[in-house]
Design a protein around this nucleic acid. Structure first.
Length: 276
DNA sequence: CGCCAGGCTTCTA
DNA sequence: TAGAAGCATGGC
């Protein structure tokens, strides 16, 4: 993936399987917005970014080569060949339709703490409200930078009280956010070591946090650590599985489970798929 | 008013 | 081990 630095921007040509709307607004991340003309903006890893794709070239505006190499190349998972994953779905009619429909989805590699905290907030909640809670969390306790606020660190949140968190209106989830922040800040949970753990151990480890069950743990592993063998089962996926895959996914796609899950989630929510 | 939302904890049998 | 209630908040 060769990138060029030109007029202050990073240009990455020959981009495939990357649709910004599908990727940034499919429910895996909650802090990106389209400002118009296909330009999206957001903040991750403490840095603001504006980006667009024109003629199969990814444009990262006002971005240094250093930040591209250290952050954004991995964030957008640019080294992975998604056509291979789409192709692996060909053995099944429904999977191939879902993969075709969401072929522009990439799995973002978000900051582990942000992914963990965001998906704790996501439980028994809807996407617009999840975004609102996270925005209030960042505005209240994140660091103000050009273009917005950073996602507050675990140690900053660990120093707060339930009363402090009342203004983000996260409801019963506030106590879970605090427990997660305290465990991470104290070192009882070390997010850094999870990257090298196998899937099962990592999931058990995360589930020591209050409010982190099977689904939130899987989302954290998938979207915060790029462990694409994680397969989060939310209400939509459960319906899809019950309706169409009562005996599980077809063999041969499990190593890409997380990506397939996202295709199915996106497809099911679009209304293209009949569910009962 | 009731129902639901990228679920989890707790209680009950 | 399985099933159901309760949970905060907000949109419809």
């Amino acid at each position: 993936m060769t990138a060029v630095f030109e007029n202050g921007n990073i240009l990455v040509p020959n981009i495939k399987n990357f649709d910004l709307e599908q990727t940034l607004d499919c429910g895996q991340a909650f802090r990106w917005e389209c400002e118009g003309n296909g330009v999206w903006r957001g903040i991750a890893y403490g840095k603001p970014l504006r980006l667009s794709i024109k003629d199969n070239t990814l444009i990262l505006y006002n971005t240094l080569t250093e930040d591209y190499e250290n952050i954004w190349r991995d964030y957008f998972d640019l080294e992975r060949d998604y056509s291979e994953i789409v192709n692996s779905c060909q053995s099944d009619t429904l999977l191939s339709a879902a993969a075709k429909y969401g072929e522009g989805i990439r799995i973002l590699r978000q900051e582990p703490w942000e992914a963990l905290c965001s998906f704790i907030i996501s439980q028994n909640n809807n996407i617009p409200r999840i975004k609102g809670i996270i925005e209030r969390l960042c505005m209240s306790y994140g660091e103000k930078i050009e273009g917005g606020y950073t996602f507050p660190s675990a140690s900053v949140i660990a120093a707060l009280s339930l009363e402090d968190l009342a203004n983000i209106r996260s409801g019963f989830r506030a106590k879970y956010i605090l427990d997660a922040a305290q465990k991470v800040a104290s070192g009882e949970i070390e997010l850094e070591v999870i990257q090298d753990m196998d899937y099962t151990s990592a999931k058990e480890y995360l589930m020591k946090i209050k409010g982190v069950g099977s689904k939130v743990a899987d989302c954290t592993l998938l979207f915060g650590f790029s462990k694409i063998d994680a397969f989060p089962k939310d209400v939509w996926i459960k319906k899809v599985m019950d309706n169409y895959f009562p005996n599980g996914l077809p063999a041969g796609v499990h190593s890409y489970g997380g990506v397939i899950q996202q295709y199915l989630f996106f497809y099911a929510r679009s209304g293209e798929l009949e569910l009962k």
